[in-house]
Nucleic acid binder design. Structure first.
Lengths: 234, 234
DNA sequence: CCAAAAGTGTTATGCTTACACCCATGT
DNA sequence: ACATGGGTGTAAGCATAACACTTTTGG
């Protein structure tokens, strides 16, 4: 059991944490590093670090991530909850603001020795309160895939519907029909056909049309699905 | 122009802020207090204060609110964004975590001299970054009214559909049909008839049935409105 | 008897899932 | 030819908005 050294009385520190998600090998995976020292030696942790005096939380996450993942490869970054339980860190009082970061499936950033991608549905033991944070990040992603264009942050610049379907399937954790996915995204005018064709699997089959997302910034497409304002006629 | 006293070099402090909303006089209003001193002397500010060593953010907001609004009257409290721009406070480096608080329309807490309710669609000049925070809080409320039972936090224990319609109208900022509101909420099994009747306006008219919300805790009713898992047949 | 408000019945609409069927390519 | 995927057409389901009409009360 780890104990708090007397010299380190609780001093409030603000940290940032990133749940960096990417679809790799057809599964939604998270970037984690293995702690060498107590507390939680041997456990896996979300990347992050301490907030400095002259930066915003967003700048801080990107700075800390630059060590693990090339910043340019994080296609979407979004603030999640700020955790504040005084007991969440046994060593010192520490607030932590969590972020969701998404990396397109075609990126393969070099990561340090102690760092690895782990499937989110088969996690090792996580340090601190990092497991609920990571699961909350996945829920946020799953929710937003339905009413925004957030798929762009999981997908390469261009892709076929079969490839996109596989990304959505991995992220959502259930079967997705390429047919219906195409219709939903086209109707919402989020996808643009590039005009080119590409072959998907190894076997034969008709070559697939190649698409791209119209914009690579978050757009909400469905906000007022219900209890929407009355339609003004004349 | 206000200048930073030398003695107060930038020291990171963590504050909490609450956007406390209530429907009063048929309008969505926010609780604000008027600053007496610089910076932003004379401007209106969200209630809040500094986070102490041994409390969570949630405990801190409720503690600070206890001065302005009776805690028991805050029916729903929810964390919003944590703001971190180093320049957001000209005096000292200060992070602030914002909250959305909702007060039922039948509560009328006594508030201090410098504190008043202001319609959110007609705000006075606000201090710091409080205006964007307040508007974000309203957006969160508007969004969640559609896919959760959050109406309970705006409504008294019991109410008629006409009363509830007026609350939704004020919060959403557009006309709401009592007929359709009733059907939506009943279908989702959020409302329970109490069996009693009540008269609404002053004129004649049929007395209205009185309802209550089945639960007074947040429930998400609609999460997978779209891109939902395939239905499993057999 | 008439005005006012509540509540019910019914239709229209829009978006989505489900599924049958046709299309293009490799072996 | 036939297997393998891609793509289109179409029907069905479902929730909600819209609106006409009935019910119940006060004056």
């Amino acid at each position: 059991m780890y104990t708090v050294p007397d010299s380190q009385a609780k001093t409030a520190v603000h940290a940032v944490l990133a749940a960096v998600l990417q679809v790799r090998d057809g599964r939604l995976q998270a970037l984690l590093w293995q702690r060498g020292r107590d507390p939680y030696a041997g456990a896996w942790a979300l990347p992050g670090g301490v907030l400095e005096e002259d930066e915003t939380l967003e700048e801080s996450v990107l700075r800390h991530l630059a060590d693990k993942v090339d910043v340019r490869e994080v296609a979407h970054l979004e603030q999640l909850e700020t955790r504040s339980d005084p007991e969440r860190n046994p060593v010192r009082r520490e607030l932590a603001t969590a972020f969701l970061g998404l990396v397109p499936s075609d990126a393969d950033p070099a990561v340090p020795e102690d760092t690895r991608w782990h499937p989110v549905d088969d996690l090792p033991g996580l340090a601190y309160d990092h497991e609920p944070i990571l699961l909350a990040a996945r829920e946020r992603l799953r929710g937003k895939l339905g009413y925004t264009n957030l798929g762009f942050a999981l997908a390469p610049e261009t892709f076929t519907m079969a490839e996109l379907r596989d990304l959505y399937t991995a992220a959502l954790g259930h079967a997705v029909s390429a047919t219906n996915l195409q219709r939903v995204l086209l109707r919402r005018e989020l996808l643009q056909p590039t005009g080119t064709l590409r072959r998907y699997g190894r076997g034969g089959g008709r070559p697939a049309a190649v698409y791209r997302f119209g914009t690579r910034e978050l757009e909400i497409t469905d906000q007022f699905a219900v209890l929407r304002p009355p339609t003004i006629t004349r």
